[in-house]
Design a protein around this nucleic acid. Structure first.
Length: 626
RNA sequence: GCUCAUGUAGCUCAGGGGUAGAGCACUUCCUUGGUAAGGAAGAGGUCACGGGUUCGAAUCCCGUCAUGAGCUCCA
C-alpha cells in the first residue's frame, strides 16, 4: 500500500519530538527485554499513533504479568542515563554484527540476529546504514532518538499481542509488546484517564446498557439483534435517508436476501470470493442425490465451483439484484441516470477474529444504491452522492472524519475499463474531494479493480478507523452483465455504474454513532424522547392527561414513570437512560396547568405551558437539531 | 484464521480442590417524597460447554465455543 511505502531516511528524520521519544522508549524496552531474556530475537520497534511497540521472537510467552518485571528493568535503563549514540557503518560491518548476534542484542550471541539480517538485506544499496547504541544494546536503526535514556520518564506497557513478521501471514508470528510514552507523568496520566473515559463510550457497553442491540451466541457470531430501542434509532436514520433519496430522484426497490450461484458466477464473485461468503445453499433433493452417490464435501465444493450443481448464495452485496432490475427494462439515454436504492441486507463470512460489536459483523444492512449513468453523467452523480454523505455527516455533527480517494496504481494492468474514463472519474473524485473542505488523502492502489472510489473514514473510541460512507465507480459489472442503453445516436451504449452508501452499513454506522454521542442521541434519534415523571401517586391522573396530550404529537416517543420512588430516583433513572426531556408533574403543575421541564444536559428549565413545550420539541425533531 | 488473555446471577465483579457470594437491577410490602440512589423482605446461578485427574472439580489439566486486544483480511 502506498500509505505504508518504505520511508526515506529524510522522511524518518522528520519524526516529531513525541515520536522520537517513543522510538527511544522502544529501545529502552528492547534493552530491558534483552537483560531478562538475552536470547530474544528482535524485529522492529517503531513509534505509532498511541505509543510504540517492539516485535520479538522469544520462547517465553510474555503475559501482562511480566510487565512489572520488564518495567522495573526499563526503569533501571532510564536511571543509568545511557547515551543514545548514532554510528554509521558499512553494510559489511553491519552484516558481521548481525551474524554475530550483537546487532539487536547486548553482546555477541550463539545465534545470528536473523530479523536484523533480513532487514539489512532489504535496505536499498544507496541508503546509509546506521546503528544506535545505548550502553551495551546495539540496534540497527535509522533514528532519530532523544539524547539520553533519562528522557524516557513517563511510559507504560499497555498490552502484548502478536503480529506477523513484516505483516505477512506467511511469516512467523512474533510477540509484540505495546507501550505508550509521554514527555512527563502528568501527560501520561491524562492519556490513561482519557482511555478510561473512552471505554465508557464504547458502543458495546452502551449498546447493552441502553438496550440498543444484542448478539446471541445461539443466533451466531457477528449477527446483530436490534432491540426495540436500537430499532427506533435505525428507523429514524433510514427515514432521514429516505427523505433525501426522494429529493435526489432515487427509486426505492426491494430484493431477496439470496440469489442463484449463476448470478454470482456472472458477477465474478463466485467462486473467487468464496472464503468470505457463507457456504452455498443446495436444495434437499440434490443433496440427497449426491449423498446417495457417496459424494463428499470436497467433491460437493468442486462441483459447485465447476457449475455442475446449482445452489443459492446469501447475497454478499446488492449490486447483482439491482443490475437485474435495471436490465429488466430497456433504457434510453433520456431516462438516465437510473438510481436504484435499497436498505439491502448482505452476509459476509468475516474471519472470526475480525468480528466485534456492531462495527465488524457477518450480516449487515447497507443503505445501498446503484446509479446507472452515461459516461458524461458520472461526475455530476459523484457530486450528488458525495453531497449526500456530507449532509449525513453534517446533520449528525460528525466533523472528525477523513476522506480517502482510492486511485489506480501507476503501473498496473489489473484494472478494467478505458483509461480515459478512469482519468475522468479519478479527476472527478479529486475535484469533489477538494470541495469538501476536509483533509483528504489520495491513495494510489486503493481503487478497486473495477473503478476508483472515495471513502469516508471515522475513528471509534479506541482510535480504530472505520470506513463509513463510500462512493465507488464501476466499469466492470455493466460489462459482465452486458448492460446497455440506447444513446441519442440510436446506438447501444454501455452505462457506468456508481455504488454508494452514505452510512456504509446501518450496523457500523449506528455503532460509531453511539460512541460519537456517548449514547446521548439528539432528540430526533432518541429511542425515548420525553418521560413524564409524576412526583407521587396523587398526581398520576393529571400526569396521564399530560401523557395523552404529548401523544397527540404523532410519533413523539414518550413514556411515564409511575414507580413508587422519590423524584430524585426517577430523575436519576431518566438521566441514566439518557432521555432528553423529563416532565415533572406535582401539585404546582396540577394547580397552574403547566409542566416543569428538565433537560438531560441543561438541567431544570422551569415551568412552561405544555403547548409551548410541544412546539419546541416538534421543531427540534423536525429540524433534526443536535 | 493466528497469538495472548478472559468466561461465576440480567449487569458489574469477589472468591477458589470440600458442594455458591456482594452491589445494582428484578418481585412484593411499607413509604407519597420537588430535580441524579427512601426502607424492608423475597426470588434468582449445573460457576460457558464437553472430557480428564481426584474420594471429591466452579476451582487443576485437555478440547470446544464465545468475548476482548493485536495481526492478517475487508469484493
Amino acid at each position: 500500500m502506498a500509505e505504508q511505502a518504505r520511508k526515506t531516511l529524510e522522511e524518518r528524520a522528520q519524526m516529531t519530538d513525541l515520536e522520537r521519544l517513543r522510538h527511544s522508549c522502544a529501545h529502552v524496552l528492547a534493552s530491558a527485554i534483552l537483560r531478562i531474556w538475552p536470547d530474544a530475537q528482535l524485529a522492529a520497534g517503531p513509534p505509532v499513533d498511541s505509543g510504540f511497540y517492539y516485535d520479538m521472537e522469544l520462547d517465553h510467552r510474555i503475559s501482562p504479568e511480566d510487565f512489572e518485571r520488564i518495567e522495573a528493568e526499563m526503569k533501571k535503563v532510564v536511571k543509568e542515563n545511557q547515551k543514545f549514540e548514532r554510528i554509521a557503518l558499512s553494510r559489511q560491518e553491519a552484516l558481521e554484527m548481525a551474524k554475530s548476534g550483537k546487532l539487536g542484542g547486548l553482546s555477541e550471541r550463539s545465534e545470528p540476529s536473523k530479523f536484523k539480517l533480513d532487514i539489512l538485506e532489504n535496505i536499498p544499496d544507496d541508503e546509509e546504514i546506521s546503528i544506535y547504541q545505548n550502553d551495551e544494546f546495539t540496534d540497527l536503526c535509522a533514528g532519530p532518538h532523544v539524547g539520553f535514556t533519562s528522557k524516557c520518564k513517563a511510559y507504560k506497557l499497555m498490552n502484548v499481542a502478536s503480529a506477523y513478521y513484516k505483516g505477512d501471514s506467511n511469516n512467523p508470528q512474533l510477540q509484540r509488546i505495546y507501550g505508550t510514552a509521554f514527555p512527563n507523568k502528568t501527560e501520561l496520566a491524562a492519556y490513561l484517564e482519557q482511555l478510561e473515559e473512552a471505554k465508557k463510550r464504547d458502543h458495546r457497553k452502551l449498546g447493552r446498557e441502553l438496550e440498543l442491540f444484542t448478539i446471541d451466541e445461539e443466533v451466531g457470531q457477528g449477527l446483530i439483534l436490534w432491540m426495540p430501542k436500537g430499532a427506533v434509532v435505525r428507523q429514524a436514520l433510514q427515514d432521514f435517508i429516505s427523505e433525501e433519496l426522494a429529493v435526489q430522484g432515487y427509486s426505492q426497490v426491494f430484493t431477496p436476501h439470496i440469489g442463484k450461484l449463476d448470478l454470482y458466477r456472472t458477477s465474478g464473485h463466485y467462486p473467487y470470493y468464496q472464503d468470505s461468503q457463507y457456504p452455498p445453499v443446495v436444495d434437499r433433493e440434490t443433496l440427497k442425490g449426491l449423498a446417495d452417490e457417496g459424494c463428499g464435501c470436497a467433491e460437493l465444493s468442486n462441483r459447485l465451483e465447476a457449475g455442475e450443481i446449482d445452489g443459492y448464495l446469501l447475497k454478499p452485496m446488492n449490486c447483482p439484484h439491482h443490475i437485474k432490475i435495471f436490465a429488466a427494462t430497456h433504457h434510453s439515454y433520456r431516462d438516465m441516470p437510473v438510481r436504484l436504492a435499497e436498505f439491502g441486507t448482505v452476509y459476509r463470512w468475516e474471519m472470526s477474529g475480525e468480528l466485534g460489536g456492531m462495527t465488524r459483523v457477518r450480516g449487515f444492512t447497507q443503505d445501498d444504491a446503484h446509479l446507472f449513468c452515461t459516461p458524461d453523467q458520472v461526475e455530476g452523480e459523484i457530486i450528488g452522492c458525495v453531497n449526500l454523505v456530507k449532509k449525513v455527516l453534517t446533520t449528525l455533527g460528525i466533523k472528525d472524519y477523513r476522506v480517502r480517494v482510492g486511485l489506480r496504481d501507476s503501473d498496473s494492468t489489473k484494472y478494467v475499463g478505458e483509461p480515459e474514463n478512469w482519468d475522468r472519474a479519478e479527476q472527478s473524485l479529486r475535484n469533489v474531494a477538494t470541495t469538501l473542505q476536509v483533509p483528504f488523502t489520495e491513495a494510489p492502489g486503493e481503487a478497486a479493480f473495477y473503478g476508483p472510489k472515495i471513502d469516508f473514514l471515522v475513528k471509534d473510541v479506541i482510535g480504530r478507523e472505520w470506513q463509513l460512507g463510500t462512493v465507488q465507480v464501476d466499469y466492470n459489472l455493466p460489462e459482465r452483465f452486458d448492460l446497455s442503453y440506447i444513446g441519442s445516436d440510436n446506438e447501444s451504449h454501455r452505462p457506468v455504474m456508481i455504488h454508494r452508501a452514505p452510512f456504509g452499513s446501518m450496523e457500523r454506522f449506528v455503532g460509531v454513532l453511539i460512541e460519537h454521542f456517548a449514547g446521548h442521541f439528539p432528540t430526533w434519534l432518541a429511542p425515548e424522547q420525553v418521560r413524564v415523571v409524576p412526583i407521587s401517586e396523587k398526581y398520576h391522573e393529571y400526569a396521564e392527561t399530560v401523557l395523552a396530550k404529548l401523544r397527540e404529537l404523532k410519533g413523539l416517543r414518550v413514556t411515564i414513570d409511575t414507580a413508587s420512588e422519590k423524584v430524585g430516583a426517577k430523575i436519576r433513572l431518566a438521566q441514566l437512560d439518557k432521555v432528553p426531556y423529563m416532565i415533572l408533574i406535582g401539585a404546582q403543575e396540577e394547580e397552574s396547568k403547566q409542566v416543569s421541564i428538565r433537560h438531560r444536559n441543561r438541567g431544570d428549565l422551569g415551568a412552561k405551558d405544555l403547548s409551548t413545550f410541544l412546539e419546541d420539541v416538534e421543531s427540534e425533531i423536525r429540524e433534526r437539531s443536535l
